[in-house]
Write a protein that binds this DNA or RNA. Structure first.
Lengths: 242, 242
DNA sequence: TTTATTATCTGGTATACACCATATAATAAA
DNA sequence: TTTATTATATGGTGTATACCAGATAATAAA
């Protein structure tokens, strides 16, 4: 006799909470009841409530704001890492509000790992830019950018709260030739988690892009740390040999 | 006075376990000590041990096998979804053993969502193939494939434990023109989790590819459900207008 | 030796409770 | 009214314990 599929208590609670979201009773960014309230409502311990919430978080249905509560996650945005039309425009085309904040910008010596990846001599000066980007006022990613200053002297004197590639194109006539993209699910370390106002170890999507020009010279490397539930990656590719 | 960065007990345990992995004391696929043993060693409760283990799992450093224990995760494989040279060859080029198993194959009527995505008339017959793929004998993904039978009649009579695109190319002279790829972190539902011998709600990477031919006719749709720690996605793209 | 049964080990789920740290709201002081 | 203080609500972390269910190993039966 096969059981009717026993479903754990925390999964049944998960289902009921998920229903409230899918049916539209709870809308994007709505605050969920407090954990202690939920445990009373469902007549289970707070530990079990937490299991359900963590599960929903892993699914990307809800998110938490440090000690403020749990909230319904907004829809994922579509994100095409092969394009460079500008984050803000791209996001706003999808009906969201977007904002970029520059956390730091400086000239540094290329670290070893960067040299290995790009072929730059170790210690070569490169621009390092740290930015945080918001979707509907929620910080969704932190990015660290390294730019080869060879063909864009004085880059840091511009405002970097705008599209970097628009700047590189308009002021420096730079054009990307090929992009090498790498990405995988990961978790956030303490430093980056703090900048996104989430907990250490929070699920994320790591993305790295390396961009060279037509002559094969290194132009830019971009490391992005996304909240895992903020995006859906979409890419359209044609076979290399048509 | 700023604290020296208080780190929770479960994170300190995480660090020590991570060290054993990074330093090579524990190798890929090694079994970790039982949770009860660890709780004794570190003199903490099993609950806290579990927090550390779940954290390491989220990072992709370890994985669990249903009620058998926790194991050190092998290295992620590089995976380029824009290529179609064949899973087995691709994985073995990276020094792993690969295997494909066909779970089911049948002719079905195109479901509504498929029609919407591909432009096929609803109810059109399509081949549906379900496969499970292993890396070093560990089931790492389940995929569901829909193929337009228009130009590949009798496809299901072939063995499908090999490269599908090699088959389509060699026997039917089909060639993909453009691929539309979509992917995002997700969790596994009960059915797929079972097929991968992991727990419901396990972290995963969802990937969908839609492929048309030169004339814009739908050829194939592929849905892949990956264990999140099994792969690193790598794509090389050139700008659409050279 | 092979097969079936049983015991044990291991993770999975759940209760009940306690205290900490920060974000926010309420209150008191300037 | 504005600012500083205090209280409270809420999530974050941790202890101690219990029982369940499947996987595996040890044992007994064929």
């Amino acid at each position: 006799m096969k059981a009717v599929e026993k479903r754990a208590v925390y999964l049944k609670v998960r289902d009921q909470l998920a229903d409230k979201i899918h049916s539209g009773i709870w809308l994007a960014n709505d605050k969920l009841p407090a954990e202690r309230q939920l445990s009373e409502q469902f007549d289970i311990t707070r530990v079990t409530v937490r299991q359900a919430l963590v599960q929903l978080e892993a699914e990307g249905l809800i998110f938490r704001a440090n000690r403020r509560g749990w909230f319904v996650a907004p829809k994922r945005i579509d994100y095409d890492p092969s394009r460079d039309i500008g984050f803000v425009r791209y996001v706003e085309d999808q009906g969201f509000h977007a904002r970029t904040e520059t956390l730091s910008k400086q000239l540094v010596e290329a670290p070893q790992w960067l040299s290995q990846l790009t072929g730059l001599a170790e210690g070569t000066p490169v621009y390092e830019i740290l930015r945080r980007r918001y979707i509907n006022d929620r910080p969704c990613l932190v990015e660290k950018i390294f730019v080869n200053p060879k063909h864009c002297a004085g880059l840091l004197s511009h405002s970097l709260n705008q599209s970097l590639w628009e700047l590189l194109r308009q002021h420096y006539q730079l054009e990307p030739a090929e992009r090498y993209i790498e990405m995988y699910p990961q978790t956030l370390d303490a430093a980056i988690a703090q900048q996104l106002n989430v907990n250490t170890g929070c699920a994320s999507l790591y993305m790295r892009r390396i961009c060279h020009d037509q002559q094969g010279e290194f132009l830019e490397l971009d490391e992005e740390f996304w909240l895992h539930n903020a995006l859906k990656v979409v890419v359209s590719v044609k076979p290399p040999k048509p």
